[in-house]
Amino acid sequence: MSNLGKFAIVIIIVIIVLGILSPLISRHPHNLPSGSALESPSWEHWLGTDDLGIDIWAQICHGARASTFVGAGTALLAGVGGSIVGMLSGYLGGDSDRIIMRISDMAMALPDMPTTIILGAFFGPSLKNIIIAISLYSWVAPARLVRSKVLAIKEENYMKAAKSYGANFWHMTKVHFLPQVLPLIAVSMIRLFSKAVVVEAGLSFLGLGDPTSKSWGVILHHAINFKGIYFTEYWKWWLVSPVFIMMSFTTSLAIISRELERLWNGKIEWI
């Protein structure tokens, strides 16, 4: 793995640790005012405070929780769920394959952001609902990838041999399918992860997220909506901090997924 990839992994680990240990790392609470409003960064408040006097570093650390929660939740739900659907579809073939693929066509035809906005508004703003809403249309990509791979594997001679010896679906999945589709699933889960983080931030930025979650998008939302923030100096810490951490996070994820693709390049031919 290249140095860049290692660096990206370090950043992701650091951010996840920030989230997990946020109460220990930040000396101020993330939800209560601990200084006066809009203090500039200082030794006391590393990234300054927001309009309510709440420490921004504490909010960023805590926001890592919300963002990784949404990312991991979506990656698991849509990634694992989508893969299972794809595997079944590819394995079963016939009518069930056709039905599943037409459903996936429909899900793919829906524009992402508007759909999430509508689903988010319908279910009500909470992190859990955002995960469900994002998953509802993003299971398609892993499902199709896995399906095509399974279709290819199914035609191999050793598979036909296995079948003639009486191997059932579970056996074939365990021994033949999974080892070969796992890299695919891993890469698409990382993609889902970063997509979910961005979509959650986007929703919160629009004011449709969970206002109590204190995710990075919520911090950004409040900063942007502060009247005339561009003409004050407050944006230097209040706006830049969440943007910066979000960009580092998603860029690192993108680098990792690229690195993984390269590593597994011998095993996966679809690239």
């Binding site: 942007i224 944006w235 943007v243 910066f244 960009m247």
Partner: peptide, 14 residues
């Protein structure tokens, strides 16, 4: 500089 660049890109896109 890096963070300024990001913020500027962001503001400009908006």
């Amino acid at each position: 500089k890096f963070s300024m660049f990001f913020a500027l890109t962001f503001v400009m896109t908006t």
